Simulated scan of single mutants.
Amino acid sequence: MQAFDQIQELWQKHEVEVKVSADEMLQQVKKEVNGLKLKSALNILGMSLSFIAIAALWIFYHFDSWTTHVGISITLAAIGVYTVILYRDHRLIAKSDYTVHPAAYLSALKIYQLNRYKLYDSLYWFYTVALSLGMIFYFIEMLSYLSLIQKVIAVGLTVLWMLFCSTLLRKAVIKREKERIALLIEKFERISSQISQPERI
């Protein structure tokens, strides 16, 4: 049994170097880069549609209380700022051609990675606080039309949803995105090193 454990330990320490050409690596990352761009574009589209829907509600529906107007204004401002930040980051990964300039794309990807960390850290809490304030002001008028049970359900579901998004969902998204971007950066570093040091025959 001890011999088996030693063999298993040696096997785990043994690293097999798989040689993949820069062209093959570029083909591998092509799908990942396109997936990253698509996800980024869908995030921007979702935020833009949210902005339009809330703005349309504000324009076409009559509200009596000034607090509702304040709440919708805060919400629209938060969504607008967040959408602009998402668009700025999207341009980082969409503007360079990674097949022609992998080193330039690598540096843009590293900036994108840092921006995403900021987005999910301090900027996320700004967004959450702004949305919460907007909803509080909005609910002042809306809750006045509901019964006590409906008020409790509406506030309870809103609080639970925000807690879920701020904890479990946020952590899962951050973890998945960190791994995905780190893997892409690692692949582009390999591509850059293979291009700068061509294989010897």
Rank of each mutant, 00 (worst) to 15 (best):
Y127H: 15
T167K: 08
A172K: 15
E24T: 00
R116W: 01
D5V: 10
M25D: 06
G35E: 04
L148W: 13
I74M: 05
V100D: 00
K39A: 07
E9K: 15
L26S: 00
R170N: 01
S21E: 12
S122Y: 11
V173T: 07
Y61R: 11
K31A: 12
E141G: 09
I149M: 07
G35W: 01
S196M: 01
V155T: 12
K95P: 10
V70G: 00
I74L: 12
I7G: 04
V20D: 06
F188S: 08
T83V: 02
I136L: 13
I54Y: 09
S50C: 13
A154F: 09
A154L: 03
Q194Y: 05
A53H: 13
L160N: 12
A130S: 15
A53D: 15
H90N: 10
T167M: 10
V100C: 01
G71R: 05
N43S: 14
S65D: 15
K118S: 10
L109R: 07
Q8N: 11
K95R: 13
L10E: 13
V70C: 03
S73E: 14
L163F: 10
T68G: 03
L133H: 05
L10R: 13
R170F: 00
E179C: 04
K30S: 13
R180K: 15
S50I: 11
S193T: 02
M135T: 15
L45V: 10
K151S: 08
Q8M: 07
I153T: 10
H90F: 00
H14M: 04
K178Q: 15
V33E: 03
Y87P: 02
I181Y: 11
A22I: 02
Y105G: 03
V159K: 12
W58G: 01
L169S: 10
L26H: 03
L106N: 02
M142K: 10
T158Q: 06
L36I: 00
L133W: 05
S147Q: 09
D5M: 10
L119W: 03
K118D: 11
V29G: 06
A182L: 04
K13T: 04
L86Q: 09
F63M: 14
G80T: 06
